[in-house]
Design a binder for these strands. Sequence first.
DNA 1: GTGGTCTAGACCACC
DNA 2: GTGGTCTAGACCACG
Lengths: 119, 119, 119, 119
Amino acid sequence: MSVIDYRDARPIYEQITERYKTLILKGALLPDEQMPSVRSLAMELATNPNTVQKAYAELERQGFIYTVRGRGNFVSGGSQLLEQKTKELAESLHALQKEAADLGIDWSRVEEKAGECHD
Amino acid sequence: MSVIDYRDARPIYEQITERYKTLILKGALLPDEQMPSVRSLAMELATNPNTVQKAYAELERQGFIYTVRGRGNFVSGGSQLLEQKTKELAESLHALQKEAADLGIDWSRVEEKAGECHD
Amino acid sequence: MSVIDYRDARPIYEQITERYKTLILKGALLPDEQMPSVRSLAMELATNPNTVQKAYAELERQGFIYTVRGRGNFVSGGSQLLEQKTKELAESLHALQKEAADLGIDWSRVEEKAGECHD
Amino acid sequence: MSVIDYRDARPIYEQITERYKTLILKGALLPDEQMPSVRSLAMELATNPNTVQKAYAELERQGFIYTVRGRGNFVSGGSQLLEQKTKELAESLHALQKEAADLGIDWSRVEEKAGECHD
DNA sequence: GTGGTCTAGACCACC
DNA sequence: GTGGTCTAGACCACG
């Protein structure tokens, strides 16, 4: 199972970032567990080390991993990470509700239609 | 009230498109009403006519306006436009719900937090 | 029943030309019958006399009408007009068949699908 | 074999689009094969990169190619593309048949004449 | 006057 | 290197 979808319009580094964010949030990677090295991950994904580096930098900026010079990158412990993600989702939801309200669209109709999605 | 936000990462033509989509959906622009001319809107927004042109082309492609060569662009009447927008919102909502489910986040907690938003 | 569709992408003079071509071919206008004057037709269609003039010029060029200076425009007799139209249709059909053949599409499948059209 | 015909009334970008649509449909370009870069094709056709860009954008919108930022444009595999093209041809055919019927022209005569075309 | 197309050349993000 | 966006300015067809 590869991570990168080259047809995806989003930049590759963003796809990598997103991928590891969910892996960490879902608990597939445990706190203080070592991340794959930049070079090995780049090799595995057949992409440029610079791209992986950029993804790791972003993950660190968002608090998902921390770096130890000369050692590597590690998953940062994170009960608060899930909490933050919940907040992000809530904000996205609120934005949708606001947009619907602006247009005079009944929110219950949106929820109804969302339930019918086939995926 | 200006339309363009240069700090916004999104391209200018997309901001214009989005702006007029909501104006039309909200009924601020009535069916068959004339849109500002490409040149005049470009002048007003201090941007390039080509940029406005691209925005109008996108609006036409999505069925929000229609073009008459030598005359101008006009709002296309559209009860089905609101219906389509509802569908778009439903899909966005469904994506959020799916993401929450993937992470084991209780959707009701997201809804709860969304209700507390101050904006 | 008006003739002009302002939402149509085609120029107005072309729509007028097309309209009268079919009227003449269908026999709604008889040979040597007088066409409406440029001015009156322009008035009726709420369009520019120049536009009607251009349409009439095109109709004359294609042999559908003839002009008598100071008198007006008249439908030209035309058993050969239908013949010519048949030829035009045949050429269009042949072009479609050629395109299908180039792509390796079975023509019978096209005919089959055409029969299912709802209009 | 050049692609652009400057005597053609159709815009250049449309000619390019059409050209590559047929190349892809005919299988001359294989799925995931790389398209010529925007700049190189512009150079080759002695036209402007923006023009090629517009053509590629249209090809992407119609599902014939996909874009990878920083990499290039690639042919998208597509068995459904031929199916769609068949449908397009069927609609064109149906339009011709309808026009003939409107004028009281016997369709079999059109088919007969089409068969005699020398090209 | 209007929109549609094209050219020339620039800057950006990404890889 | 790639594509994506934007600017400046031109020409055309249409009305």
